[in-house]
Structure formats: structure tokens, C-alpha cells
Amino acid sequence: MYNILVTGAGGTAGVNFIRSITLSDKYFVVGTERNKFHTLFPNVNKMEVIPNHSDHNYLDELRKVIERNDIDFLHPQPTPELQVIAKNRDALDVETYLPAPEVVLRDKLAQQRVLERNGIDVAKTIEISSEADLHDIEGKIAFPVWVRARRGAGGRLSNKCHSADDVLLWIKLCVSQGRAKWGDFIIQEFLEGRDMAWDSLWHEGKLVTSYARERLEYPFSQLTLSGITGTPTVARVIHEDKVNLAAEKAVRAIDPSPHGCYSVDMKEKDGKPMITEVDSGKFHTTIGLWGYAAIKHLKLPAIYALPNLYLSIGLEKQVPDMPKYDIYPEIYLVRHIDCGAWITDWHNLKEKVL
């Protein structure tokens, strides 16, 4: 049995990741959380409360958890913890399966610049570091635009703006409320097309497997200015060569030797996938839920659950032979708070997952 540590275990992504891997009896799972209320959520063998990633004691406390529980493998779930751990993993003396630190630590603006230099189709992106940068913005990008944070997840600081005045008002509001500072924002062209996501696992430069989906609905989107709340309530698996190839090409541009998990966000423009973000060292939030459904309900082999495959390769260094793309059938995942989760094809398949 392997001892696995999952940080941020009480968040939605952590709970889903753990839900998938605990279908196996190979793992003793320890979770860490900074929020004591969230320690109730994950199905772990042991839970520990540690400081926030920004606390100067964070690494020392994490190291104590690793030593106290004889941890064999560390999976950092939230992006802020991933970045701290990627930067300091040599000091932690525990197995991980992560990209190189310099790849993990790039912000969204740096990512876009790398993608552009490598000829990847991306949403046009402009840096905004001061109010002066907005003076001639309408000559650089067409409105409406998408204002978003350079760092973070879940649609942080995002809003659709229809003019330079809108952009200025939005940034000033975020700054005045203490949610951000000038220099935390980028502006991207607003793309009206389909909202798509791609999750993948790589080993020493080779793509192991992947799947793509289209996001169709977000939770409580009517209550937010942006309509984006991070993770979808309705998504459907899609099998499209152009999506797979665009995402794979984007990962290879970001990292010449991809290793670990990579997630890609895309919006469509005139039928073409445009890359809006590549998250290195991260799966999307629902990866574990798809994996759980794949094993429990679709009766696929355990390696078709990407969290389980990720742990297997990370620990045992053996890469199975499996499809590079489209590992799941074209089905829907429908879920919502307090309503459970369902997989369906709207014809013959309708199963309650949670």
C-alpha cells in the first residue's frame, strides 16, 4: 500500500480527485486543508489542518505531515500550493509527478507570449499594468473584451467589458475593494464560440492519454457579472481532431518535454479552437468525477480514471499502452450543488453518479 498526500483535499477538485483514487485499495490517503470546515468533505484515511500556502510556516508544516505519515507521493491540488511545492519540491524529499518549476510558475500573460511565439492560435492578449495603458486600448483590440487575472483560477477577477471606460471602472472597483492591484490584470479578446477544455497526462515528453469536453452551463452564472464560476454544471465529452491537435500543440509549445498533467482551455473563433490558457501540473476540477464515473458506471479499466493513472505512473514509472485521445464516450456530465451528479447520453444511458 502507498501513502498518498493530497493538499487542498477539501476543495471540490480535491474531493473529486480523492473520490477517484479511493476506488482502489492500493492507497492510504492523507489530506491537508487550511479550512477546518472543509476537512469534513473528502473521503480520506486521515485529515490534517495546515497553514495557508502564503504562511511562512507552510513548508515546514507540510514537511512534518510528510514525515509523520511516511508519505510516498505528494499531489498538490490547488494552484497556489502547486506553485509553492513545484518551486520547493527538492526540499520536501517526496515523490511528485510535476512539470519543471519554470513551466508551472508562468502566469497567464507569460503563457500567452510563449504560445504566440510558437505560432499557436491564441486569444489576443494585452497587458494592463497602469491606467495609462488604457488610453489607446481601443486601437489595439476590438471590444467587447474579457478582463481577467494574470494568476489564479475559477474566473478570478473576470468580466466582459464593452469599452475602455468599462475596463477602467472594473479594475478600479477590484483595486478599491482590495481584491487586486494594478498589474494583476490582462485583457483578452472576447470569443463568442464554444467553451472547451482538454485534460491530458504526459510522461517524459510523450502524450499518454487525453479527453476533451465542451462546457455548456456554469453554476449560479446568473448571479455573477462574468457568468463564469470556474467549473461547469453541464459538460459533454467531444471527439474532435481539431480540438485534440490544437491542445496537444499548445502543451508542446509551453513545455518542450511535458511531464505530468496539463489542462487546456479553449474558445472557438470562426470554427477554430483558440487557446486561452494552459495549466501546467493541473487537471481540471471534474477530472476525478469523470474518472469515478468511468470506473464505477461505464465499467472502464481503472487506468481510464486519469487520477488513478497519474498515481500509477508517478509511483511505479510504468506507462501503459492506451488511446492518446478521446478515452471517454460522448456523454454528458450534469451536476449541481445539493442535486447530485448524473451521466447521460439523452438516449439509453442515464445513471446517477453521486
Rank of each mutant, 00 (worst) to 15 (best):
K324C: 06
Y332Q: 01
I313T: 09
L306R: 10
L333P: 08
K317Y: 07
L309K: 04
P329S: 09
G291W: 08
G291C: 08
I303Y: 09
L333K: 04
A294Y: 01
A294R: 01
P307G: 09
P320C: 11
P307R: 05
P320S: 13
A293W: 01
T286G: 00
P323Y: 12
Y292V: 02
E277D: 15
T285H: 07
H284P: 04
P301A: 09
P329K: 10
P320L: 11
K299H: 14
P307W: 05
G281W: 02
E330Q: 15
S312W: 11
H284Q: 14
G291E: 08
K317S: 12
Y292P: 00
V278E: 07
K282E: 14
K324A: 12
P329T: 09
Q318D: 13
A294V: 01
S312A: 15
I313W: 11
Y328R: 05
Y328V: 08
I303Q: 07
Y325F: 15
P329L: 09
P329E: 10
K317N: 15
K324N: 13
N308F: 01
V319G: 01
P320G: 13
I313A: 05
K296L: 00
L306T: 12
Y325K: 12
V319P: 04
E330T: 14
P329N: 09
K317H: 15
L306G: 07
V334Q: 00
I295V: 15
K296N: 09
K299E: 08
T285K: 01
